Simulated assay, not measured.
Amino acid sequence: MTIKNAQARSSLALLIEEKLGYAMTKQVKPVSTNSRYSHTTSQNNFSIQSPHGTLKRALKRSQLQRIQRQQNIESIMGMSLTLCPDVTSRGRPDPDWLEHFITLAEDIANQTMQKLWAKILVGESIAPGTFSIKSLQTLKLMTQREAEALQKCASLCGYLEKEDSYLIILGYYKKPSILDLLRKGSTETMNLSQAGLSFPQILTLMDINLMYRQEIESASLQKGQSLTLVYQNKRINFEAKSNDLVLSYYKLTQTGDELKKLINTPVNKAYKQLLSKTLEEEFNLVWE
């Protein structure tokens, strides 16, 4: 056995002891050669050597689990007090919501994820109704890969105030004029992977219902009309240079909107450059 293998087994044994409350030791079994039911592979060679019966061991494991859950929820609530700004609250969270929150959050042991749950509690304490139970359930089941996809997505999202939602501008097209119906009109689309958000990550966000599956189009913009988005603390106006311009974008779902609020990241620099390069021919981009 190599040193690396030995370290892995030692680490695994320690993990098992922490969760079970008892160490597992290797059994010495006599080799059976005549039994028709004997197996030569996939045998369990380890067991717990303890004077305590199975029931008492189960009770101890349950106690350890309850202790860990209590430590988790105390950590999250402590973080929430640290993160909470000195602002006026609009009321108390709904009691049923709070019970769901505790039930879902008490199994969160990762400190990074605990901080997200703490932010949720802060947000709900300031403005009850900010986070739905569905969003809590989605966050609870989210894998590391899915969380990374949301993180990448967040830095590309602009906030549309009039709809209270987040979206990612993809490009635009110009409707053909009546005098030129045979032409499709000019179209420009960005490759979001150049800004760090790959197509598989987009599909992941769609699969977990954080992003709508279909691209969405804005209303037709005439010359001088604009669409305004907010990227963290900066506003950008997309002002049309000519008539019949339509912006295309991906839009987050209600659950996506709620979870996006947990992630405060500045606008992605590569995406900002892509926006300017892709839209500059037909739009004036004004940052405020």
Rank of each mutant, 00 (worst) to 15 (best):
T2Q: 14
S10I: 03
L12C: 01
A13N: 02
I16R: 03
E18V: 04
L20P: 00
A23I: 04
T25H: 10
K29C: 06
K29D: 05
V31K: 15
N34F: 08
N34V: 15
R36T: 13
R36D: 14
Y37V: 11
S38H: 11
T54D: 02
L55V: 15
K56P: 04
L59C: 13
K60R: 15
K60P: 04
S62E: 10
S62I: 09
S62Q: 12
L64P: 03
R66V: 06
R66N: 10
I67A: 08
I67Q: 12
Q68K: 07
Q70L: 10
Q71F: 06
N72S: 13
I73M: 14
T82E: 06
P85R: 04
V87R: 09
R90C: 10
R90P: 02
R90Y: 07
G91H: 04
P95C: 05
P95M: 06
T103S: 12
L104C: 03
A105E: 02
A105C: 00
D107R: 14
Q111C: 05
Q114F: 07
K115E: 08
K115A: 09
A118D: 03
A118F: 03
E124L: 01
S125V: 00
S125T: 14
I126E: 12
F131P: 04
I133K: 10
I133G: 01
K134A: 14
L136Y: 02
Q137Y: 06
K140A: 07
L141I: 09
Q144R: 11
E146I: 04
E146M: 03
E146V: 00
L150C: 01
Q151M: 14
K152V: 05
G158E: 03
G158D: 00
L160W: 13
S165Y: 01
Y166I: 06
L167P: 08
I168E: 02
I168C: 01
I168Q: 07
I169C: 06
Y173N: 05
K174H: 15
I178C: 01
L182Y: 02
R183P: 08
K184V: 07
K184Y: 13
G185W: 06
S186D: 12
E188S: 07
T189K: 10
S193M: 07
A195R: 00
I202C: 05
T204Y: 03
T204F: 02
L205S: 04
I208Y: 09
M211T: 11
Q214A: 14
E217G: 08
E217S: 13
A219T: 13
S220E: 09
S220R: 11
L221E: 09
K223I: 02
K223Y: 03
L227E: 01
Y231L: 08
N233C: 11
I236S: 00
N237W: 07
A240M: 09
L245A: 08
L247M: 05
Y249G: 03
T253R: 05
Q254R: 14
Q254N: 14
K260N: 13
T265D: 15
P266V: 12
V267S: 09
V267A: 14
V267K: 12
K269V: 08
A270T: 12
Y271S: 07
K272S: 10
K272F: 14
L279M: 10
L279E: 00
E281T: 11
W287S: 07
